[in-house]
Each structure stands twice: as C-alpha cells, then as structure tokens.
Computed example of a mutant assay.
Amino acid sequence: MIRTKHVTSGNWRTVESFWNATGTAFFEAPAGAQVKVRYGVGWFGFDSQKQSLDGTHVKTLKVGRGSIAYARMQVRVKQTTDVRYDVYPGNVAITTPELQF
C-alpha cells in the first residue's frame, strides 16, 4: 500500500516499525534522501541496507527475521518534506512496486 509521511530534516526518522514481523518497502524520492533498516534497540542495534535515493530509481528495503527483537525502516532528508513509499507486510515475492509513484 502506498503511504506518504511528512518527514522533518535532521536525524533519522522512523516511517515503519516491525516487531516479530517481516516486510518490504519501495522508495524512489526525494532525491538526496537516505533510507535504511535499523535492527535492535540502543547500543545493541545495527544498521542494514543503507541507500541513497536519486529520484529516478526505486530502492528496496526488506525487514527479515531480525525483527524478532525490533526493526524499523528509517529515512533522513536534507529538507523537511513528504516521503512517499510503497510498503507490503510479510514475506512477499514482489520485486518492484505494483503502482508507479
């Protein structure tokens, strides 16, 4: 399902959270934004799949079994803006978003 979140500039902002669940999300814009998956909490956490958006190519984030503890998809933008993405819960076989952004 396509979602739009208003993201303020600065630190990493969580757009989706997963607890003992899996999911896949597709991001395309805004250009210059960064996306990643953060597993765990505090000092026991680690980052995965860190990517930069270029506004043209679709970037994919997947949350796997590591979310048994806690996982979240995060975005960092240079300017406060809306971020639009396509997210699917569970293990999906989709490799590209169903709808165009």
Rank of each mutant, 00 (worst) to 15 (best):
G42P: 00
V41I: 14
G40L: 08
D54W: 15
S48R: 04
G40C: 05
V35C: 03
F46L: 06
Q49S: 08
K36F: 04
G40K: 07
W43V: 15
A31M: 10
E28G: 01
R38N: 15
R38D: 12
G32D: 01
S48N: 01
A21D: 07
G40I: 06
S48I: 06
A33V: 06
L53P: 00
T24D: 09
H57C: 04
W43H: 11
V41S: 13
V37P: 02
Y39S: 02
R38E: 15
A21T: 00
T22Q: 12
H57F: 09
K36W: 08
A33C: 08
G32M: 00
A31H: 07
G55A: 06
T56E: 03
A25N: 09
F27V: 11
G55R: 02
G45F: 01
L53T: 01
F27M: 05
F27A: 03
S52T: 09
G40S: 10
A33P: 11
K50Q: 14
L53D: 03
F46K: 04
A31E: 13
E28H: 11
F46Y: 13
S52W: 15
S48Y: 02
G45T: 06
S52F: 12
F26A: 02
L53R: 09
V37A: 00
Q34M: 07
G23H: 10
T24Q: 07
R38L: 13
F46P: 00
F26Q: 05
V41Q: 15
Y39C: 11
V35P: 05
G32S: 04
K50I: 11
A21W: 07
Q34K: 12
S52D: 14
T24R: 10
A33H: 12
K50M: 09
A29R: 10
T22W: 11
A25E: 02
V35L: 03
F26I: 08
V35S: 10
